[in-house]
Each structure stands twice: as structure tokens, then as C-alpha cells.
Amino acid sequence: MHWSTLILAFAAAPTSALIRFQCSQLVRERLDPLVNPGLIPSPHVHQIVGGNSFNATMDPKTKDIPGESTCTTCQFAEDFSNYWTAILYFKARNGTYKRVPQLANAGFEGAKGGGMTVYYMQDPLYDTKQLSSVKAFQPGFRMFVGDINARNKAQAARFRQLTYTCMDNAGTRDKETVAFPARPCKYGIMTSLRFPTCWNGVDLDSPDHMSHMAYPESGTFESGGPCPSTHPVRVSQVMYEVIWDTSKFNDPAEWPADGSQPFVWSFGDGTGYGNHGDYVFGWKGDSLQKILDTKCYVNCEGAKLQSIEEMNKCSGSVPEAVVEDIDGWLDVLPGGHVANYS
């Protein structure tokens, strides 16, 4: 299809939806079909939500994600996508590690394992009009955001929309940072991952799982910056919110003697700059596009929803592929990682 025809086709139907929903935990283990397809186990532990066809391979050329899933841990019953991030650990003063549990967002209490809250947005989160025209992702689409090797602010600058919020209560949303919070957080630490919003209009994936996507060429998604000419197709912004219950680890006697923060990602990053997330599209048919074409804010007429109890029934339905202890007090992180800061 010619470029101009493609872009006009995507811009033909204005959209005005913002959806926000919770997903219960599906599984926690060392699998990563996006970055390490077929590798069992993958290098580090992830927490995954979504459709239960998740496995080590998930080849987009042969796999029908919604067709092969029998359930989803997400609130939208036709969303069999998979969303995942690394897992957060606490490093005690004696050098051992303990997995930090997750909390569901306010209003979604009871979601098994805490899971995560997922957004699809056309405009800034707090703009209830949501008037921009965007296109739903297509079958086979997938993407990655972040730099697992970033250990300082300069290295993480490309992904300025991956942030942390030190929560004093369930409603705290201000003072975001790009590194781990330096002080104890009374309620927990929330990680927010905002994926790029500009697509090249051709590739459903790329070798690095990022090059087919881009952030706006100026400003940010929130400021309505235009897409670059290389990535002219505007898509909705996928955003994850994950709340880590760090309140259980706020005893200063267990923190490092120098007072530095004690949390570390499952791949060993102790700075927080290596934050990253993975996304594999799996909405059934045109269900996502129909929602995006509906004028709605969070609750969308016609969307098929399931209760938290129904979501929880799908939790744990994926056969365990890697048998190892990820929850006890560990001398090293699963995969042999240790905390590093450079």
C-alpha cells in the first residue's frame, strides 16, 4: 500500500477513548519470548499478565495469540495480549535478596498477585476528551521499551517516560524520578512505563523490538508533539503501572549502612535506570479498534468485561516451564545475577 494511502486510511476514523484496566498475575518465571525466544530459562525473572497462551517461543508467524488462549487475567475479556516487566527484589544488609510483592491499584483490590494496571490512551492521561486519531495495533505486533544496560541518567535519557513514584499512600502520583527513589516509601514504589506512540506503518516488529516505533519528534506524547516523518502513524500510548509493596522493607536496620536505597531489578540493576517493559499484542479480532472508536473514558459501552474473580481464575493457568526458587531469601538473584550499579 502506498504511504499516503496507508496514512489516510489510519486517520479516517477519529477516536476518543481512554481505557484503564487491571490484569491479575498470570505467571512469574524466567521466560522472555520477545527478547530471548525459545530460551528456557531466559536470563532473568519476569512477571507476566494477560492471555494464557504465553510461552517461551510465541512465534508471530505461526502463533494465533487470541485463538490459542483459553483465558486472560485482564479485565477486558477479549484482550489476550501479554504484558510483562522484570521483577523487583530487596537486597538486605547481609547481602541476601527477597522478591518484593505487588499491589493492585486502588479500586482493583483482590487482583491475584497484584498484577498491573494497563492503559491505552490517545491523548494525555488527564485529558478526558481524548480527541486524537490513532490506530489499533495489528496481529503480530510487539514492542519493547527501555535499556536493560542503562546505569546512569544519560544512558536512560532516550526512555524518559519510564519513571518511579515514591508513594506515601495509594493516591500518590507526583514527583516522578527516572532512578529508584532514594528514601523509604511508606506505601510502595510505582513504576510507570509509557511506550512510544509513533509507528513506521510497515513493520510489526524489528530486530531490537524498538526501531519500528518512536516517540514524537518534539516534546512528548503528553504535549501532543508530532510524529517524525520516519514513523508517521500515530498509535495509542500503552502504559503500565506496577505497584511494588516496598513498605515491608522499610526498616533502616536492613538498609545499606551508608543509607543508599536497597532495591534491585531481577537482572541486577541497582540504579533503576535499566527499567524496561515488553508488549505482545493479542486482542481478539477488531475488538480494540472498536473500543478506540467509541467515545468513552475508562468504561466503554459494548466492551466485554470480566470480574476480578474471573480474571483470577486464569492466574496460574500457564504450565510452569522453569522450576526454581524465586521467592525465598536468595544468595544470588535467579539466573546468577547480583546487584550492580555500573
Score class of each variant (00 low, 15 high):
Asn94Cys: 03
Lys61Asn: 14
Gly67Gln: 00
Phe90Cys: 00
Lys63Pro: 01
Thr72Ser: 15
Ala92Asn: 14
Cys71Ile: 02
Asn94Val: 01
Tyr89Leu: 06
Val100Arg: 01
Phe108Gly: 12
Pro124Asp: 14
Phe137Glu: 14
Gly115His: 07
Met121Ala: 15
Arg93Phe: 00
Gly110Trp: 09
Lys91His: 03
Cys74Asp: 05
Gly115Glu: 09
Pro101Thr: 08
Lys91Tyr: 02
Pro101Tyr: 07
Arg99Asn: 04
Gly113Ala: 07
Gln122Ile: 10
Lys91Arg: 15
Gly115Thr: 09
Leu125Val: 12
Ala77Lys: 15
Ala106Glu: 14
Asn82Tyr: 01
Gln102Val: 13
Ser133Phe: 02
Arg99Tyr: 04
Met116Pro: 04
Asp64Ala: 00
Thr117His: 02
Ser132Asp: 13
Lys91Glu: 15
Leu88Arg: 03
Glu68Trp: 03
Gln75Asn: 13
Cys74Thr: 06
Leu125Pro: 00
Ala111His: 06
Ile65Arg: 09
Asp127Thr: 09
Thr117Asp: 10
Tyr97Lys: 02
Ala111Thr: 10
Thr128Met: 14
Lys63Ala: 10
Pro66Thr: 06
Pro66Ala: 08
Cys71Asp: 05
Leu125Phe: 13
Ala106Met: 09
Gln75Ser: 12
Glu78Tyr: 10
Pro66Arg: 05
Glu109Trp: 08
Ala111Pro: 05
Tyr89Ser: 05
Thr72His: 02
Asn82Thr: 10
Thr62Asn: 11
Leu125His: 11
Ser81Val: 05
Tyr83Thr: 05
Tyr126Ser: 12
Asp123Trp: 08
Lys129Met: 12
Ala136His: 06
Gln75Phe: 10
Asn82Val: 10
Gln102Phe: 09
Trp84Ala: 05
Gln122Met: 13
Gly95Ile: 04
Ala92Ile: 01
Arg93Trp: 00
Asp127Ser: 14
Gly95Trp: 00
Tyr126Gly: 04
Gln130Cys: 07
Lys129Pro: 01
Ser81Asn: 04
Ala111Tyr: 08
Thr62Ser: 13
Ala104Leu: 06
Ala136Phe: 05
Asn105Gln: 14
Lys135Glu: 13
Pro60Asn: 01
Glu78Gly: 08
Thr72Tyr: 05
Tyr120Phe: 15
Phe137His: 12
Cys71Met: 03
Ser69Ile: 01
Tyr83Val: 11
Trp84Asn: 05
Lys129Glu: 14
Phe108Lys: 10
Ser133Ala: 15
Gly113Pro: 02
Ala111Val: 08
Lys129Cys: 09
Ala106Ile: 11
Phe76Leu: 15
Gly115Trp: 08
Cys74Leu: 05
Phe108Met: 06
Thr96Asp: 13
Thr73Trp: 01
Trp84Ile: 07
Trp84Glu: 06
Leu125Trp: 12
Ile65Leu: 15
Ser132Met: 04
Asp79Phe: 02
Thr70Gly: 09
Thr96Trp: 00
Gln138Met: 14
Lys61His: 11
Cys71Pro: 00
Gly95Arg: 01
Thr85Ser: 11
Gln138Ser: 14
Ser81Asp: 02
Tyr120Pro: 02
